[in-house]
């Protein structure tokens, strides 16, 4: 019995290790590259023989990267805040109120969730040039928040539906004013959902590449994923592999931190809208 349990455990252990390796190997490889000096870059070793921070020093000395990092953080944060605020309002209405047009709203956000971004690139490119926000922060913030709104509305309305609204009544009978009931009871209950949604939306904005290369032309609004892609062409003879790897690691770090800290919430958020609950 004990032996059977043990082989069972071993089997699961092996499976789990395989899964973890599968998930982490490409990440490990690019991290290893980022710590190699140019001389050993091509040695094919999984672990750098001579650890160096040269690549990191290099990218942080160029405004090409630092500026892009600031752009990435700023644009993603602002887009996230706006999308979550607008999404919270709409999701509250979807989850709690009865009004005609609700189905239209849901259908529309579903449609946008499925929208091919490339279809918007050409018109947005032209519109943004005409109204003068091409290659600016707003030029990226606006499409980002639009495309993350469906995600925000979906996730948030699923969370809001879970809140037992009896509690609002209970608070009122317990002597709370409507404002107190909202602040002391509803907000603490809704906060985790809003926070989770913010993480998902941030990851979405942080990840984008197509808009970032299409709607920017200079350093002034180019985000890191786009900047990395342009590192490649900067020198014809020496591939900037080390720099790209280092930059890649830098923008991966926040994602890994989110995942490590909020694993449970992210899973809950990703799956909330997808399954009837």
């Amino acid at each position: 019995m004990a032996a059977a349990g043990k082989t069972h455990a071993t089997r699961w252990g092996v499976v789990n290790v395989v899964v973890v390796l599968y998930a982490l190997f490409p990440v490990w490889w690019i991290a290893a590259l980022s710590f190699k000096d140019p001389g050993t870059l091509t040695d094919g070793n999984y672990i750098p023989r001579d650890w160096t921070l040269e690549n990191y020093r290099g990218i942080f000395q160029t405004s090409e990267f630092t500026r892009a990092l600031i752009n990435s953080i700023g644009i993603a944060l602002i887009a996230t805040v706006i999308a979550v605020i607008l999404g919270t309002m709409a999701a509250y209405a979807v989850a709690r109120l009865r009004f005609p047009g609700k189905q239209v709203l849901i259908g529309m956000s579903l449609l946008i969730a499925m929208f091919p971004p490339i279809s918007l690139v050409s018109p947005l490119f032209n519109i943004e040039r005409i109204i003068g926000i091409f290659d600016t922060w707003p030029g990226l913030i606006i499409p980002y928040m639009t495309f993350s709104l469906p995600l925000a509305i979906y996730t948030l309305s699923a969370f809001f539906r879970e809140i037992p609204w009896d509690l609002e009544k209970a608070a009122k009978v317990d002597g709370a004013s409507p404002a107190q009931a909202f602040r002391l009871v509803i907000v603490p209950l809704a906060a985790p959902g809003v926070f989770t949604t913010a993480i998902l939306v941030f990851i979405f904005c942080w990840n984008d590449f197509l808009f970032a290369i299409s709607l920017t032309s200079t350093e002034s609004a180019r985000t890191v994923p786009a900047a990395i892609a342009f590192f490649t062409g900067s020198s014809q003879f020496q591939q900037p592999t080390g720099s790209i790897a280092a930059a890649a690691v830098v923008i991966t770090v926040p994602i890994i931190i989110f995942v490590l800290l909020f694993q449970r919430r992210i899973v809950a958020g990703l799956t909330s809208g997808a399954v009837k609950g």
């Binding site: 037992p164 009544k169 209970a170 603490p188 209950l189």
Partner: peptide, 20 residues
């Protein structure tokens, strides 16, 4: 009068305890 001004207490079927 709003509930808070009536000075009555209520016990709900779901208990409506504040989970936090």
């Amino acid at each position: 009068l709003a509930p808070k001004e009536r000075d009555v207490a209520m016990v709900f079927q779901s208990y409506a305890l504040y989970p936090h």
